[in-house]
Amino acid sequence: MQLELRHLEAVRQIAEAGSLGRAAARLGVSQPALSAQLRRIERVTGGELFVRGRLGVTPTPLGEYVLSVARRVLGEMEALAAGARAAAPHPTLRLGCIHLVLVERLIARLEEELPDHEIDMAIEHSVTTLTRMLGAGHYDAILYGEVADHEVPLPDSAAARTLISKEPACVRLSATHPLAGQEQIDLVDLAGETWLTIAEDDDGGPEAMVSACLRAGFTPKLRYRINDRKIRYDLIATGRAISLSQPTSPHAEGTVLRPLAGDPLTGRVRLAWNRAAVSERRAGLLYRAAGRAYLDGVPDNTFYRAWWEARPELHPVLD
């Protein structure tokens, strides 16, 4: 057997994940299949690449050498592919996003800003997945959020701009909730509520929510982790849970969106791109399309429109 790029990718994923199980999930294979592949790779390289321990796997000296070569070779191949796409007359733009509200309006704005480009857009539930796939060359650019002080680590090949530097978190609750009639809600008044979030909320949101609630004097009760938006809204509408939400979120039948008094929790929206695949000009057009898509949703919430208009220093510069 000769080593191939897929073998080098397997070694890299095992090292980055720190365990065969997590690496197998990232690669979309079973753990036994990945273990068998690793044994074949180790036969070719002439020795054990990882030491298995109670807390996962760590590279051996031989593994460190193979890993360093693997990263260099894979990086060069990814740069080659990205550069070739960038040199094409009208390259396809491969865009990855978490489920930000602006994504629903983004296609129309991309068609206006990049009329000659094919758009390949995918939604991921994990920011970690987005950044890994950006670094691996599967995406040319990504749109994602960060909550409170959390900073998402980006690959060395990426450049980034902040689209929205600050937006306040709102709370979505049932239209029949006792607090639904208030113009704004104090976080402490939600102390007895059941909360839900998405399954892989790795943008710093859950940690920031817990911290904000602790500052308000209580520990939030998180019961549901659900990605499907309809199921989440149904749970909220029937009064089984509440959730944090972006202020530009659309109306959902049976629910209301209310601001939290004093803005105890805020987030950011960012754009990152692979410098080898996306030129500065194209990145600027993508930034402008995303900014216009975000602004399209500001008027949907009366509270947020007033909040936003009072803070022009937060507005993205789109010219």
Results as ranks from 00 to 15, higher is better:
212 A>C: 07
48 E>G: 00
59 P>G: 04
167 E>L: 13
110 L>I: 06
40 R>T: 09
125 H>K: 09
178 P>D: 03
11 V>C: 02
31 Q>D: 12
174 S>A: 12
176 T>A: 10
181 G>W: 06
286 L>I: 13
308 W>G: 03
292 R>K: 13
224 Y>N: 05
250 P>N: 03
269 V>H: 11
241 A>H: 04
228 D>R: 09
203 D>I: 12
177 H>N: 03
51 V>Y: 00
243 S>E: 11
291 G>Q: 02
293 A>M: 08
297 G>P: 00
248 T>D: 11
80 L>S: 03
257 L>G: 04
81 A>Q: 14
204 G>H: 08
213 C>M: 07
231 I>F: 06
119 I>A: 09
22 R>Y: 04
180 A>M: 07
49 L>C: 05
19 S>N: 09
179 L>K: 05
133 M>T: 00
160 A>S: 14
38 L>H: 05
31 Q>H: 11
16 E>P: 02
43 R>M: 13
249 S>Y: 10
49 L>T: 04
176 T>V: 00
15 A>I: 03
62 L>P: 04
52 R>A: 13
212 A>H: 01
105 R>L: 14
242 I>F: 00
135 G>L: 05
73 V>D: 07
215 R>D: 12
108 A>S: 13
182 Q>H: 14
275 R>Q: 12
114 L>H: 07
17 A>K: 06
162 T>G: 11
196 L>W: 02
92 T>Y: 05
33 A>H: 12
55 L>H: 14
273 W>D: 01
91 P>A: 08
63 G>R: 05
207 E>Y: 00
205 G>F: 10
310 A>I: 08
78 E>A: 14
264 P>A: 06
307 W>R: 09
111 E>V: 15
235 L>T: 04
29 V>A: 06
105 R>A: 15
126 S>T: 08
164 I>E: 03
53 G>W: 10
78 E>C: 11
195 W>G: 02
200 E>L: 14
145 G>M: 12
296 D>K: 15
207 E>A: 11
143 L>K: 01
222 L>C: 11
56 G>N: 06
12 R>W: 00
180 A>W: 02
297 G>R: 15
318 L>V: 03
14 I>W: 01
138 H>F: 12
60 T>K: 06
48 E>P: 02
38 L>T: 01
158 A>T: 08
40 R>W: 03
147 V>F: 15
163 L>S: 08
61 P>V: 07
131 T>A: 13
58 T>M: 14
152 V>R: 13
307 W>M: 11
39 R>V: 15
262 G>T: 00
130 L>K: 07
220 P>E: 04
220 P>G: 05
197 T>A: 05
7 H>R: 10
19 S>C: 09
13 Q>C: 12
18 G>N: 04
28 G>I: 05
278 V>A: 04
16 E>F: 08
193 E>K: 04
45 T>E: 13
112 E>W: 14
179 L>G: 07
106 L>T: 06
198 I>R: 11
272 A>M: 02
185 I>C: 07
58 T>A: 13
144 Y>T: 10
252 A>P: 00
152 V>F: 10
279 S>V: 07
73 V>T: 13
246 Q>E: 12
1 M>L: 15
287 Y>K: 10
127 V>M: 08
139 Y>C: 05
8 L>C: 11
85 R>K: 10
129 T>P: 10
66 V>E: 04
29 V>H: 08
94 R>M: 02
315 H>E: 09
199 A>K: 15
317 V>H: 15
